[in-house]
Simulated scan of single mutants.
Amino acid sequence: MSKQKISKKKSIRRAKTMTEVVISLVLVGTCGFFVKNTFSNMRDVEASPYFDQTDIEVTTPTDTTVPDPNQTIYESSQVNTTDKFRGDLVLVNEQHQYFGGDEDLVSITDMNYENEVSCYTAVDSTYTILRHVYEPMTKMVQDFYDKYYNDTLIIYGSYRTTEFQQQLYEEDLAQTGDGESTRVAKPGFSEHETGLAFDFTESVNHDYDGTGDFEWINKNCYKYGFVVRYTEEKQRLTKIQNEPWHFRYVGIPHAYYMTTNNLCLEEYIDLVREHPYDKDHLEFSYDGNDYEVYFVASDDGAEKTTVPVPTGTRYEISGNNVDGFIVTVYKGQKPVVEEAPTKSFDDEDTDAEENSTEDTEASEDSSDESSDGEDY
């Protein structure tokens, strides 16, 4: 190959290389120009006046307690303030008078006849008891009979009108010659006027003392809602001598607690008063059932008293005949639907009830009760 041809090829290659270099420089320069213009046109963007620049502190809840689904929820119930004088837990003694007059009474012998009960009887058909007390009283005696086959029990003291109590009181004063009776309560201050109490005697010795076969009744009566109201041990509080024949209905939960804790009714009323609604309630269990008891003071300056009661749970309200109401909660039990509301002192008596009361008073005034073991 000639030297001239080689030089020509070199010249072409050199020219091509130079062209590529120039093009590259142009491209680089162009890019630099655009980059420079871009940066020169850039400026800081101010924060929007609508943006809150305050630091936001994010907190995590510390209370992780899950609400108890079994927690009792309460609602307000309006109760006649005068109803503090009525109920299964009324305290009637020498200091606290009973105010009644519309008791729902039944004849013991008539009820026994209707229900074919022959394990016990009463003196005659004028001996009455509150309707809701008859059933547990009869069940207790029936269970006693089924155990000992002893059918000698007689009810010789039950509901009394104030007029009949006055008669008994005056007869005792005439017999003793004293200015004040120590065996018969003054009219208005006897438990028998409530229809919640009754007395036993028996047809063999006519002297029920709670011993022998009858010891079973005195020891087990709380299972049916009754307490032996007057004992020698509590005489300083009740002001009444030992009366093993006198039984008082208070309801199963209260009878259980009073008996197992050796409390008379006076002591129990005081104890419940120490457990008001807004503080710790009295809670206990018996026979697989849980109970809760608390006190609500009566609003004596108003016609109605607000009593907190549980929702969706069975409960009962009773006056204590002193200063308020006792609420008994049957925890875990459904409310009991009553067929008819209980009458209050503010309700007017029907003519039928008035006639029934007059008939009862007349028949009781004409009857004679045994003077043996006459009690309060």
Rank of each mutant, 00 (worst) to 15 (best):
A362F: 01
A255C: 12
K239E: 05
L173D: 01
W216A: 01
G312H: 12
K8M: 14
D104E: 15
L173Q: 03
N93M: 11
T176P: 09
T201F: 00
P276R: 11
R43G: 07
F164I: 03
V184W: 00
D44F: 15
Y159C: 03
V123T: 04
Q175S: 12
I155D: 00
V21E: 01
E103S: 14
N41I: 12
F284G: 03
Y277K: 06
V21N: 05
E292R: 14
Y376E: 05
T260C: 05
R183H: 01
I12G: 02
E283F: 09
E267A: 03
F345E: 01
Y120V: 00
T306K: 10
K3H: 07
D372G: 00
E215C: 06
F144A: 03
R13Y: 09
V92C: 03
R160K: 13
Q95L: 07
S203R: 13
K147S: 00
A255S: 12
F214I: 13
V123K: 00
E316Y: 11
F198N: 01
G87T: 11
D88I: 14
S318D: 12
Q165P: 00
T82R: 11
V35M: 05
T109I: 13
E57S: 14
K343E: 01
N41G: 10
N150L: 02
V45H: 05
T311H: 04
Q175G: 02
I154Q: 00
N355E: 13
E116L: 04
S363A: 14
S285E: 08
P308Y: 05
L25M: 09
F214N: 11
